[in-house]
Design a protein around this nucleic acid. Sequence first.
DNA 1: TAGGCCATCTGGTCCT
DNA 2: AGGACCAGATGGCCTA
Length: 176
Amino acid sequence: MERQGCLGDSELYDFVSDINLMEFHPKSTAGPKQLGDGAQSPMAYRSRFYNLSYVPGGHRETASFQGEHSEDGQPLHEPAPGDTSVYPYSPGPFPHTPPPPLTHAGRSKRRRVISVGQRQAANVRERKRMFSLNEAFDELRRKVPTFAYEKRLSRIETLRLAIIYITFMTDLLEST
DNA sequence: TAGGCCATCTGGTCCT
DNA sequence: AGGACCAGATGGCCTA
């Protein structure tokens, strides 16, 4: 696993040490107060601080975009020209499809009826959009400094660490 | 086994 | 009209 970020060990050490002084208490209950009880290294402390676990080799790859294919491996396409089949309302087990709000005339407001093909095309676009979002997260992960053994940062951890990193670098610039 | 994280689906809303 | 964006719901995978 490659080292993320571009700081040298000493700089990283300083950065990590500086984090200790910042008021940032993510979800973890293991805050700075636990620094003395067994957190010998800044790495160990930092892991506690961010509620990150030491998982040697622990890494989960971001799922790659598999292209426009349905679950059964069939490629998904844009809706066929003649496809006028309407996507059924509340089709799946999802209870998050409440009945549309009714107007006084009893008709749904701005109800947008789409075909099965359009729904599938929208799903494909959404997957592409999320894939692109994850690519941006991966790029950000490579920019923020982490330790080699450290578990892959989650998205929320990446964002929070990036905020701290930017704050740290800004303070560093202003102090020089 | 519970909780965290993530991929995916879906409908609503906004914008072009 | 249709695409982009968003948030809620769900299920799978993984770890403690």
